[in-house]
Design a protein around this nucleic acid. Structure first.
Length: 152
DNA sequence: GCCAACGTTGGC
DNA sequence: GCCAACGTTGGC
């Protein structure tokens, strides 16, 4: 089993939305490295730190898990979607996404400031300068520390 | 709103 | 295959 951190802007899709919907396809990822993590390395059952970016405060808001392995992201075929990809076709999809399922919401978001205070988390990818990747692997140790900080 | 960091594109 | 220009991300 692996552990991940996935970013979302809560104005677009928050942990509360995921709780409401129970599951969601993680559509809209348009970065090759993030895509490759989803297609090659993620498996159902993997656990996910749900990270709110561009938020007040930004930080880890809860836990989800991978419920279905990667399939073609349908939004790339939709001309009306902001995620439309002209170079993709149903025969040759370019973008993929996994389905994730709600697990739990932290009592209080573990903010970036909280994360930075933890010496044991100094190597956490999301804390590194210029870290923009929206799907990142995290170690089991880091996952457990953050889960505990979040009260789960 | 600013801007540093990073990814992608496209001319050559 | 290089690299300048451009677009995006995301903290502050």
């Amino acid at each position: 089993m692996k552990y991940w951190l996935m970013k979302s802007e809560p104005d677009v899709y928050s942990i509360t939305d995921l709780k409401k919907n129970s599951t969601t396809w993680w559509e809209g990822v348009r970065n090759y490295q993030a895509r490759n993590f989803m297609t090659k390395d993620m498996s159902p059952g993997d656990l996910v730190l749900f990270y709110h970016s561009n938020a007040e405060p930004s930080g880890v808001a809860g836990i989800a898990k991978v419920s279905k392995s990667a399939e073609p992201d349908q939004t790339q075929f939709d001309k009306k979607s902001e995620y439309f990809e002209a170079k993709a076709s149903v025969d040759k999809p370019r973008w993929y996404c996994v389905q994730i399922e709600y697990v739990g919401t932290f009592k209080k978001t573990v903010s970036l400031a909280d994360l930075k205070q933890q010496k044991d988390l100094k190597d956490l990818p999301v804390l590194q300068k210029g870290s923009r990747l929206s799907v990142q692997p995290v170690t089991k140790t880091h996952f457990e520390i953050i889960k505990t900080l979040g009260g789960l």
